[in-house]
Design a binder for these strands. Sequence first.
RNA 1: GGUACCAUAGCUCAGUAGGUAGAGCAAUGGACUGAAAAUCCAUGUGUCCCUGGUUCGAUCCCAGGUGGUACCA
Length: 304
Amino acid sequence: MHKYLIVVVGPTGIGKTKVSIEIAKHYKTEIISADSRQIFKELKIGTATPSDEELREVKHHNIASYSIHDYYSSWEFEQDALQLSAELFKTHNQIVLTGGSMMYIDAICKGIDEIPTIDPELRDNLMKLYNEEGIESIRRQLKQLDPDFYMQVDLQNHKRVIHAVEVCLMTGKPYSSLRTNTVKKRPFNIIRVGLELDRDEIYNRINLRVDQMVEMGLIEEAKQFYPSKDLNSLNTVGYKELFAHFDGEYDLDKAIELIKRNTRRYAKRQMTWFKKDTETQWFRPDEITNIISHIDSLMLNCDS
RNA sequence: GGUACCAUAGCUCAGUAGGUAGAGCAAUGGACUGAAAAUCCAUGUGUCCCUGGUUCGAUCCCAGGUGGUACCA
């Protein structure tokens, strides 16, 4: 009997939680979340973390397991998720992986290259340089340290340029030499299920969900973390707009409008990313039966 | 019922001394290998309300309609 990782992807707000619970219940298994913000225990309302009831229905992993003050990235996620899946596959043939964090999904399905974690001081220094002198000085460094990558990177994107430079400085090697461009072998099969709806429907759901978050106390939740607003973990839709509102940049209605807009844009980016994968089979979130039979037929094919 | 004003992009509006049009917001397409709910790039989508008239040519001028708003009855 083979092992299967059932990966459920789709834009934010489309109903991944519900569908993945149904799938997990059907196969009597557990869920690994691939969500870069639900992983923080402090963030509940603004990240639409599954409710206590939902968490009781099916065991979820990688939800509320770190603090917003911890350093966490897709590398840590790859490690965590692989270890977890190995553990779960001892007693299950299927595991459900669900989440909207595109790079986290890739980290477990394809793997990411081994690169050392960047010394925070080094990153701060480069960031300072960027803020003081602009992107040009960072670009110059990259051109010298890794001319190959300089040619392919988006030179307007300071995060990419800075990251390449910090990797070069950290390892003493060109960043491009560490990029293997390979997909890592995994000890399990991957079945990809995508959830989709008409754009209008997704956007309506998002707008509605934001209003519900506000009713549930999103503003109070954000207020609580205002002192830590510069943390990367809080550079998050739903919080950053409220922080700006607390700073007096605009009124509350405007903040809520921006949360809706930025969530919509996030959903669009997710769709662009997920649509690229040609192996994903797409369903409406209410087609549970079809989804299960699709998974069953893929497994049957593989096992025979 | 009368008078006035308005009707242009999804929304709010600008504009054309007559040569089929442009801002803001919203939106759309895309990139993505350790910050990824992050970060970055590109893009104007239009029966200029309808029907006639004048004109080489009308979104613009004229007439009539339709819809809206305000005021007067």
